Amino acid sequence: MYAIVEIAGQQFKVSKDQKVYVHRLDSEEGSNISFDKVLLLDDNGTITLGAPAVEGASVEAKVLKHLKGDKVIVFKKKRRKGYKKKNGHRQSFTQILIEGIVGVGAKKKAAKKEVEVEKTEATAEAKPKAEATEEVKPKAKATKKPKTEE
């Protein structure tokens, strides 16, 4: 079972007992947090797609630690002008452990899919009748005019 969840403005594909590095969260180390914005749920082949999020579904996680990423050096230079700028950046991350995925909304979405299938079958039956009444006109062929000598 996996889920696609939005955490701190980014989307992650997560499953149970997986460690994920996300942008810095305000939670304390060792605290449990829940993410309600689940965009997709997959339960052994049964896919539930949210619009935009699956209602009642959530991802439970535990904050392991806060840390910083590798240093990135930004160096700007313009040749022959004497312009040099050196700047560094270290992104703050939070390491979380996914403890479980709760998918309450899966049964509600399955019922809606059956209704949508019935609607598409009804429109598919109506389409061939409409196409049979229309006539298809052939396109006119382009003709080349012969060149005349002057």
Rank of each mutant, 00 (worst) to 15 (best):
A57M: 03
T46Y: 07
F93Y: 15
V72Y: 05
S58W: 02
D17I: 10
D70P: 14
K68N: 14
K141P: 02
V22G: 08
L64S: 03
G100Y: 01
T148W: 04
A110K: 14
E150M: 09
Q18I: 06
F12E: 01
I33P: 00
E60W: 01
N32L: 08
L40R: 07
I98F: 00
V59A: 11
G50K: 06
Q11R: 07
K129E: 13
E116C: 06
V136T: 12
A132M: 14
E121M: 09
E131R: 11
Y83M: 06
T94A: 00
E125Y: 13
K76I: 04
Y83K: 07
K127T: 09
G82F: 04
A53S: 11
K119C: 04
V63C: 13
A61W: 07
E150A: 15
V63L: 10
G88H: 08
K147I: 06
Q18L: 05
K13I: 09
I33Y: 08
D70G: 08
D43T: 06
K71W: 02
A3L: 03
I7V: 08
L67T: 15
I47V: 15
E116V: 06
K113F: 02
K137V: 15
G56H: 04
K71E: 12
K137H: 09
G103I: 00
E60T: 10
A142D: 10
A57I: 03
Y83H: 05
S15P: 03
V59C: 13
S92I: 11
D70K: 14
M1N: 13
V38G: 01
G30T: 03
K16C: 00
A140K: 14
I101H: 00
I7M: 05
G100M: 04
H66Q: 05
L64K: 02
K16H: 03
T94E: 00
L39Q: 06
K109A: 10
S15C: 02
R24W: 04
D70F: 09
E60F: 01
A3Y: 00
L41A: 10
P128N: 15
A126F: 07
G30L: 06
A51T: 15
E118L: 11
K13F: 03
E134S: 10
Q95C: 13
Y21H: 07
K109D: 07
A51S: 10
T46F: 06
A122Q: 12
G45C: 08
K37C: 04
K77D: 10
A106D: 03
K112N: 13
A142C: 05
F93Q: 01
K19I: 08
K107T: 09
D26V: 03
K86E: 09
A8C: 02
V38A: 00
E135N: 11
K68R: 14
V5C: 01
A8N: 09
K81D: 12
K76P: 01
L41V: 07
Q91H: 10
S34P: 02
P138D: 15
R80D: 13
V20E: 01
E29I: 06
K119L: 15
V5D: 00
A3S: 11
R80N: 14
T133D: 14
K85Y: 08
K129I: 08
K139E: 07
H66T: 08
E134M: 08
V20K: 01
V102W: 02
K141N: 12
K71F: 07
E150Y: 05
K144Y: 10
Y21A: 11
I7Y: 02
T46L: 12
A124R: 14
K129A: 12
